[in-house]
């Protein structure tokens, strides 16, 4: 049985990882995809479907952890639409 608190924690963790992509396009896609898929599955009521969704989220979290690490290891110049961080 997956509780709503567990789901919320997973959502937060996924979003946190999505922000970690160094590549602008991948980062924006991951953020959009995470929020949209949670929104789309908001109305899930069947407990088995919820568990499946949760388990898939856990796998995705592991994938995001690996891929954001890779993205941070191979970095490229920022895009023209990307504001640079203020250097102190």
């Amino acid at each position: 049985m997956t509780t709503s608190k567990q789901i919320l924690v997973l959502y937060k963790q996924l979003l946190e990882k999505a922000y970690k992509f160094d590549n602008y396009n991948f980062r924006e896609f991951a953020k959009r995809k995470v929020t949209d898929s949670f929104k789309a599955n908001k109305g899930l009521s069947d407990s088995e479907a919820i568990t499946n969704f949760y388990n898939q989220g856990i796998l995705d979290l592991a994938m995001l952890t690996r891929q954001t690490t890779i993205s941070q290891m191979y970095t490229f110049e920022k895009l023209v639409v990307e504001p640079l961080k203020r250097q102190r």
Partner: peptide
């Protein structure tokens, strides 16, 4: 082109 000190330089794909 935008101010290079504020934005990146890589083109949009």
């Amino acid at each position: 082109s935008r101010d290079e000190s504020l934005f990146g330089t890589r083109p949009i794909y």
